[in-house]
Design a protein around this nucleic acid. Structure first.
Length: 704
DNA sequence: ACCCCTCGAGTTCT
DNA sequence: CTCGAGGGGT
């Protein structure tokens, strides 16, 4: 590193260093933009590198001054790069996980049990290594690659077509006679260990920042705005699945992968077909043995039901297919020192202990914090501040404390005393007793409620969360800052921010980090949300037990916020018909019903809601009460349906004017039987009630 | 009275 | 991602 001396700064004072870092951050980010986005660098690569080196050298001398927007923390253009959004025709799902052999046999057992006896007993499974890269969907029309999209949240990803085209492994044109007109190939983009090491060597030689692990590097390489950068990175691809397709070349998983290979897509050579749990486990241990020699990262083995017709019938459980599972390799572990236990306060008042750790690298990432879950967990493991502890990244993502290394404990360490008062507001923190079971809750909760600042901030964060108001430019950081400055104390304050900002002594645009443009953008984003769907609105209120799903259920069951509110107030009397109506919603039981009723009965909530409704209009769900072929009929749903959850089916049937009953009787007109229907189906048959399949039901009501 | 599944609420790091 | 609780089916 001979060049480094030249840029090591003269004896700077702290004040000078601060100013210099600020200047460098601006300068480097300007050159980044010129180089990466406009492709018109103003300075030579060497001069650019020198700027970076100077920045890093000053940061080494004054680590306390490292800026949050420091250029050393990133490579290339700022990551706020905007790619077009792409909605996947067929969602890109995640997989259920198995961590031990029993989980695999349970999975096989579950699959077999799903079908009527014997039908799937001999069904085969495929086994293949789970590549640790990033999922991608490649759309081909008449053989031509027309779109490459990242997984994103599974439903919506980003358009990275230009970058994907630079990857040699990915065919730009498929010329097979049997390649369907429309076909989406899905697979994993990854970087080999050798390429990763070479890239890092080059970075180091050039005095540039080195990368942490192949996975993140591959992901970063693909999200470059300039495809030339992606092209310069050695990325590879394995195909293993498909999405939208006008035709399928095979009726088994293994047949599909053979076709993909025949069409010129790289497929993993370690894929095997298995006829039994024993074989599946054998493949897992075989792949685990070869893991180190593969030359690329894998984190487990994926098993899939081979027959596609069985896959179709198995369907999905929320976000994961029932016909596939990932058997993960044991997570990497590490030991480190537990420096402290911090107590965080959630929006419901829950006190959650978090372990502050001596930073340690686990699975290619530096871990500083780890969840300790709750009071009992700390007691069970007898974790004490100062202990040497073992940690792992559960499912290779969330760090958790496994336990204490006993021999190393200093005798002076005292058992951790879980606070009985809220660290944020000093109110009592208690463990509620469940009225049903008489048992103590696992979580200790702050009773401060409205007076607790920590809860208030967390509620606001929830209000702007992704499934709630989702206001661009208003994230956790801004909410915290705005709360501290007194700009935003309740949800309605967000919507009066602009008006107040115009009058205030210290308007936003005078704050550091804010300019005219960013302030205008924020107000625009806020104003866009003055009209919002009812389900998001309900979710945003942060009522206990009401998550995104239940909020949607409520939104569908009531005409609007007004009628919901009126009904909930009436339901304060448990004898009222409104209470019964609420409790009858499939998916809402006593605890949930009580929570909703209590929320609307609370005076402060009423005020907050009134103020909010002056600013925001929740749009009700479009529910056309239609007369249909099932109007006035009584319907019972049983078994597992593919396209609807049972609660959705109920809402749908009621919208069509039908009554949904819980059990079959002679008054029942239709029984709709999904897969694995049980006693209700038998009873229907015994009583001679019409039994419909899911498809027949859709046909009957005339909906696709 | 169980058992299974779904949902909510908490968490990390990039 | 994990955990516990709630809800519903057998």
């Amino acid at each position: 590193m001979s060049g480094a001396e030249a840029v090591v700064p003269e004896n700077l004072t702290e004040e000078q260093a601060r100013a210099e870092l600020e200047r460098l951050a601006k300068e480097i980010s300007r050159h980044d933009a010129l180089y990466y986005r406009q492709d018109q660098p103003e300075i030579s690569d060497a001069d650019y590198d020198e700027l970076r080196l100077r920045n890093e050298a000053i940061e080494t001398l004054f680590p306390a001054l490292i800026r949050s927007d420091s250029p050393s923390g990133r490579v290339g253009a700022a990551p706020d790069a905007t790619f077009d959004k792409v909605t996947h025709g067929v969602a890109m799902l995640s997989l259920g996980n198995a961590f031990k052999e029993d989980d695999v046999s349970d999975f096989v057992e579950r699959v077999r049990r799903f079908f009527k006896r014997g039908e799937a007993d001999g069904a085969a499974f495929t086994a293949e290594p789970k590549i640790d890269g990033l999922s991608i969907s490649l759309r081909y029309k008449k053989g031509a690659l027309v779109l490459g999209a990242t997984r994103g949240d599974g439903t919506t990803g980003e358009n990275v077509t230009a970058n994907v085209r630079t990857i040699a492994d990915i065919p730009k044109q498929v010329r097979a006679a049997d390649f369907p007109d429309l076909f989406e190939v899905r697979g994993e983009i990854y970087m080999t260990h050798a390429d990763f090491a070479a890239l890092n060597q080059r970075q180091e030689r050039d005095g540039l920042q080195t990368y942490v692990n192949p996975r993140n590097t591959a992901a970063g390489s693909l999200r470059q705005l300039n495809p030339d950068i992606t092209a310069s990175r050695p990325l590879h691809f394995f195909a293993y699945a498909w999405g939208d397709a006008s035709a399928l070349p095979a009726d088994t998983q293994s047949g599909m992968v053979e076709a993909l290979a025949r069409w010129g897509f790289p497929v993993n050579p370690l894929m095997r077909a298995c006829a039994s749990v024993q074989e599946m486990l054998a493949v897992h241990s075989d792949i685990e043995v070869r893991r180190a020699a593969l030359g690329y990262d894998i984190d487990g083995v994926v098993y899939k039901v081979d027959r596609l017709d069985l896959q179709d019938r198995l369907g999905f459980v929320s976000r994961a297919p029932r016909w596939a599972i990932a058997y993960k390799f044991p997570a990497e572990q590490a030991t480190t020192i537990l420096k402290d236990i911090e107590i965080q306060v959630g929006r419901t008042g829950a006190l959650t202990p978090v372990a502050k750790l001596e930073p340690v690298t686990v699975g290619g990432v530096v871990v500083r914090n780890a969840s300790l879950h709750n009071e009992d967990e700390i007691a069970r493991k007898d974790v004490r501040i100062g202990d040497m502890v073992t940690i792992q990244r559960a499912g290779d993502v969330i760090p958790q404390v496994l336990g204490v290394i006993e021999g190393k404990r200093d005798k002076s360490l005292k058992p951790f005393e879980f606070p009985k008062i809220c660290p944020a507001c000093g109110s009592h923190a208690v463990r509620e007793v469940n009225p049903k079971t008489g048992k103590e809750d696992v979580v200790r909760r702050c009773t401060g409620g409205l007076i607790c600042p920590a809860q208030a901030v967390e509620r606001l964060k929830h209000f702007v969360a992704r499934n709630a108001f989702d206001i661009e430019g208003l994230g956790t950081k801004q909410i915290e800052a705005f709360y501290e400055e007194g700009r935003v104390m309740t949800p309605a304050d967000i919507f009066t921010l602009e008006a107040r900002n115009a009058r205030t002594d210290k308007p936003l645009q005078e704050k550091e980090g804010w300019g005219e443009q960013s302030v205008a953008n924020l107000f625009n984003a806020i104003n866009e949300r003055r009209s919002i769907s009812l389900d998001r609105f309900i979710y945003a209120l942060g009522i206990r037990h009401i998550g995104a799903t239940t909020a949607r259920l409520l939104a569908r069951s009531y005409d609007g916020i007004g009628s919901l509110r009126a009904a909930m107030i009436a339901a304060g009397d448990p004898e009222a018909s409104e209470y019964e109506e609420l409790n009858n919603i499939d998916g809402i039981g006593e605890a949930v019903a009580v929570a909703i009723v209590e929320f609307f009965a609370e005076g402060h909530n009423a005020q907050v809601l009134d103020a909010l409704l002056e600013q925001v209009t929740p749009e009700p769900f479009e529910v056309e009460e239609t007369a249909s072929s099932v109007t006035g009929k009584t319907v019972v749903f049983t078994g597992t349906m593919e396209r609807l959850s049972r609660s959705e089916a109920k809402v749908m049937a009621e919208r069509l004017g039908a009554k949904v009953a819980g059990s079959v009787s002679s008054k029942t007109d239709y029984v709709v039987a999904g897969e694995a229907a049980g006693s209700k189906l038998k009873k229907a048959e015994a009583l001679g009630v019409t039994v419909l399949s899911e498809d027949e039901w859709f046909a009957l009501v005339g909906e696709g």
